[in-house]
């Protein structure tokens, strides 16, 4: 049996439907390494999880626990919470980090409720003070920085995807298998997954260094391609306003804002987006904001570092041509 160090940080890693570690893994392990010794947890069906465990070590996990649960992959949330409970019992960590993905945060939720642990959600960083591990949050669209801690015990912290730049050094693989007894908690049963097709050459919206977003001003799904084209010239991810999502120009996973993804890129370009407060809540922490809108009074201009009052259908093609000419 492994001897877990007193400053262990237990990190639950998401696994994608195709069986790879989720992209959030590197940041989670990076954050954990800053405040303690990262111990990764992977939930898998019996006999599986070996490759992911190797990958977790390469991303900096000092130890990897592969938790085998009979209902992993067929039941929602409960197997993950059972695994987290078993691993926490074994490791006795100083904190538990989980991705703030839908799957991750719901597992954290069930586990925290079961163990009556303090839960902090959507952290953009972690730190350690004399009393223990602290979660850093950016709230109300980045208008406030809030630090939270728990009254006792190990905090359960969900970490915003793409928010952590720190990376941990690769470690030799030290893998332990843990058979998890099902808690018997009632769970929903999962069925067929319809995977969203993603343009693999484009960066993920979460954590992207550059984002080009389109709004209702694009006018149609066909014309929204202009957003994709500019994104590809810049090597940027594609985002959208809720109005563009509602109109069916792009899938919901691209929505930036209050009820969508929060991004903090180096460059954010808003095309045909008015800049409603709920949209700004998801992007106003970007380093540089560029806006193109034909309405000079659009609120997006209040926060734009470079604003162009004009028709995006003439400005953007010219911009693309100019950028391509410079590349050639």
């Amino acid at each position: 049996m492994t001897d877990y160090s007193a400053d262990s940080i237990l990190v639950l890693l998401d696994v994608t439907p195709s069986g790879a570690l989720s992209k959030s893994a590197a940041g989670l392990l990076g954050a954990a390494a800053e405040v303690g010794t990262p111990v990764a947890l992977i939930v898998a069906a019996a006999g599986e999880g070996e490759q992911q465990a190797q990958d977790a070590a390469a991303l900096g996990a000092t130890h990897v626990i592969v938790a085998e649960h009979a209902a992993a992959g067929t039941e929602l949330t409960v197997p993950g919470a059972d695994a987290l409970a078993a691993a926490a019992e074994l490791v006795r960590p100083d904190a538990i980090l989980v991705s703030n993905s839908i799957e991750g945060r719901e597992i954290a939720a069930r586990y925290a409720a079961r163990s009556r642990s303090g839960l902090a959600v959507d952290a953009v960083g972690v730190a350690r003070d004399a009393e223990g591990v602290v979660a850093r949050h950016s709230v109300y669209g980045g208008a406030y920085n809030v630090d939270s801690a728990v009254t006792w015990g190990a905090p359960v912290i969900t970490v915003r995807e793409g928010s952590i730049d720190a990376r941990a050094e690769a470690k030799p693989a030290s893998i332990e298998r843990l058979e998890v007894a099902a808690s018997g908690r009632k769970a929903a049963v999962t069925g067929a997954l319809e995977e969203e097709v993603v343009a693999s050459s484009r960066p993920d919206l979460r954590g992207a260094a550059k984002v080009v977003s389109g709004g209702r001003g694009l006018g149609s799904e066909d014309k929204f391609v202009l957003v994709d084209q500019l994104a590809d010239v810049l090597g940027a991810a594609v985002g959208a306003s809720r109005a563009a999502v509602d109109a069916g120009y792009v899938p919901q996973s691209h929505q930036v804002g209050q009820t969508g993804v929060s991004v903090s890129p180096q460059l954010y370009i808003a095309l045909g987006i008015s800049g409603a407060i709920q949209h700004r809540a998801g992007m106003q922490t970007a380093k540089t904001i560029v806006a193109i809108n034909k309405d000079g009074d659009a609120p997006i201009f209040e926060i734009a570092d470079f604003g162009i009052v004009g028709d995006l259908f003439t400005v953007v093609p010219q911009l693309i041509a100019a950028l391509e000419a410079r590349k050639a």
Binding site: V134, A143, Y144, N145, V146, V309
Partner: peptide, 27 residues
């Protein structure tokens, strides 16, 4: 165990930068 706020800071609001009206060369 409960989660508590231990510190809180307000960030200065963003301000507007350059704004130009397209005269054919904005791109």
């Amino acid at each position: 165990s409960r989660s508590i706020v231990i510190s809180l800071g307000e960030k200065p609001p963003r301000t507007a930068g350059t704004k130009i009206v397209d005269e054919g060369d904005a791109g």
